[in-house]
């Protein structure tokens, strides 16, 4: 069935786990390409955040990365998309799925089993793991997402947030080397979101898992990601470290994103002539600079 074995070693040599070069993609019967000339490289253990507004090509990029774009959605492509050393477009999502976990935003369209335990163990059963190994991994995965003891629960009895955690557990059971997320925390409350991303951080640290997350929350990405890629109308508008976002406010606005409060505040103050030459790259830095400014101005008043 699949060419990849469960214990495939990917990305251990330090080569990038994802390498897109001038990749373009057009859906069948579409007037314009959904993605154009995308170049992207992700190293093992790296956390890359992808953001952009509706229509920017985020979901298409997700599909290109998990191998479903060409084989399943039957679109046409240009350029290269290499995932784990394989050509994502010819290998297809079943093969890529052996070492890549895809977590979509709508759990209802992803859950295939009647019980939680069955759902988590599904991919393992498909890849030929023994019953004992499956049981062990299922318990472990459920515990990691905070659903211990849920193995026998029927999937239809779970809440939206629990379902999202369940599909995360199902994705983790196969111990992937790459995790793709498409707005997978929309049903979680802030605490749930934090715990979810803490879990991802742990996986990166412990198992060198690479993470590509599509999120609308720029502030969240700035907090968690190693790099942020901003898409707009199918192109990469910006690819840089979180700290670089601060100096690209214009670009972020063009991309239709909501700026964190501190960035907006700094922008307004700059437009009034304050903070000239200063470029704070985080909320803490912005607060420190503004405090300094207030003190110096008060100091000047006093003298």
């Amino acid at each position: 069935m699949s060419a990849a074995s469960p214990d495939r070693e990917v990305g251990t040599s330090g080569a990038p786990i994802v390498s897109l070069e001038n990749f373009g993609f057009t859906y069948p019967n579409a007037a314009a390409p959904a993605l154009s000339r995308i170049s992207l490289s992700v190293a093992p253990g790296e956390f890359v955040g992808i953001t952009g507004e509706e229509g920017s090509g985020r979901t298409t990029l997700f599909r290109a990365l998990n191998g479903s774009a060409v084989r399943h959605y039957k679109g046409s492509r240009t350029g290269q998309a290499i995932i784990g050393g394989l050509d994502a477009c010819t290998a297809g999502h079943a093969t890529i799925g052996a070492f890549t976990a895809s977590i979509f935003d709508d759990p209802d369209s992803q859950i295939v089993s009647l019980t939680a335990g069955e759902e988590v163990g599904f991919s393992l059963a498909q890849r030929g793991f023994s019953q004992a190994a499956i049981r062990e991994r299922v318990e472990k995965a459920l515990a990691e997402v905070g659903l211990s003891g849920f193995s026998r629960r029927s999937t239809s009895s779970l809440s939206g947030g629990q379902k999202q955690r369940l599909i995360a557990a199902a994705a983790l059971a196969l111990e992937p080397t790459l995790i793709l997320l498409d707005e997978s925390t929309s049903a979680l409350d802030p605490r749930g979101k934090r715990e979810f991303y803490d879990l991802l951080d742990r996986l990166r640290r412990e198992n060198n898992v690479a993470i590509i997350a599509i999120e609308r929350d720029l502030e969240l990405l700035m907090e968690r990601a190693d790099r942020i890629v901003v898409l707009h109308e199918g192109y990469v508008l910006l690819d840089g470290k979180p700290r670089d976002m601060a100096s690209s406010r214009h670009i972020l606005r063009t991309a239709g994103l909501r700026l964190p409060a501190w960035m907006e505040t700094v922008e307004i103050l700059k437009s009034q002539g304050w903070l000239e030459g200063k470029a704070p790259e985080s909320e803490a830095e912005a607060v420190a600079l503004i405090a300094e400014l207030l003190e110096s101005v008060e100091g000047a008043m006093a003298s």
């Binding site: 999502h93 369209s109 992803q110």
Partner: peptide
């Protein structure tokens, strides 16, 4: 309609209906 995304989910997790009709192993 859901079945389409469900099939995608099944296939991504290793179930490939297009392959041989005998299940392996």
């Amino acid at each position: 309609r859901d079945v389409d995304s469900l099939t995608l989910s099944l296939e991504a997790r290793g179930f490939d209906p297009e392959s041989k009709t005998k299940p392996e192993r």
